[in-house]
């Protein structure tokens, strides 16, 4: 990990140069599952941003108290608790979307980006900057997932956020509705991202 511990560089690193999805290629299972409709993706990624921020904050506050032997277990416990809280809130206040997301909200627990950031950053940094790191990593995830969802919903349903934007004659691509298409779109996004980075001369 780089030594950047100021808010600006962290933001840039997590959104772009070290984006969890297209540089580290973490958390792609959910990138496949929740990107067929933009609305679902927005709610899902907001949930991830919230869980990551809170997890990193909590881990950073508690880090000096946690015995090394049970460090991972405690991190998992923290992540799982926040995910369940988010799940309960979604079920109570946006029941329709909660039903659509089904098991995927619960599966945020297994998203490796969260534990990765808790281990790599929150374990060795102060609480507030850790929270910022968690949230920006979540936003990096959000950016990529929204791009995938934009392409998939547009081509798979001919709509954006549920509003029909393609002409009626447009034939929806069924492949875009199915999970494998996210792989193709993700691959193309990684390709574009890396190509731009190379042109900028940033160390990839």
């Amino acid at each position: 990990m780089s030594s950047a511990a100021a808010p600006g560089p962290i933001l840039r690193e997590n959104l772009w140069t070290n984006n969890p999805i297209f540089m580290q290629v973490l958390g792609i299972c959910s990138a496949l599952a929740v990107t067929n409709l933009l609305v679902n993706t927005v709610i899902m990624t907001i949930a991830v941003v919230a869980v990551m921020g809170m997890t990193n904050l909590t881990v950073a506050i508690m880090k000096s108290l946690i015995p090394r032997k049970v460090r991972m277990m405690v991190q998992t416990l923290i992540i799982a608790s926040y995910v369940i809280v988010v799940d309960i809130i979604l079920r109570a206040y946006v029941p329709d979307i909660s039903r659509e997301l089904g098991p995927y909200v619960g599966l945020i627990i297994t998203n490796c980006i969260i534990m990765g950031r808790a281990e790599a950053f929150a374990q060795s940094n102060r609480p507030l900057i850790s929270m910022w790191d968690g949230m920006t990593s979540g936003m990096g995830y959000m950016g990529v997932l929204l791009s995938i969802a934009l392409i998939r919903e547009l081509l798979g349903f001919g709509s954006l956020f549920g509003y029909q934007v393609m002409p009626a004659a447009f034939e929806p691509w069924i492949i875009m509705v199915m999970p494998p298409s996210a792989f193709f779109v993700l691959g193309i996004i990684i390709w574009i991202g890396k190509a731009i980075m190379e042109r900028e001369g940033a160390p990839a």
């Binding site: 309960i88 109570a92 029941p95």
Partner: peptide, 28 residues
């Protein structure tokens, strides 16, 4: 310390979940 710490942390987070559940159960 490890055993006590784990027990306390687990209890604290389970309590948090129980509260969240209790607060939203009617709405759900």
């Amino acid at each position: 310390y490890t055993v006590i710490f784990t027990a306390v942390v687990t209890f604290a987070f389970v309590l948090l979940l129980a509260m969240a559940n209790e607060l939203t159960i009617e709405q759900i």
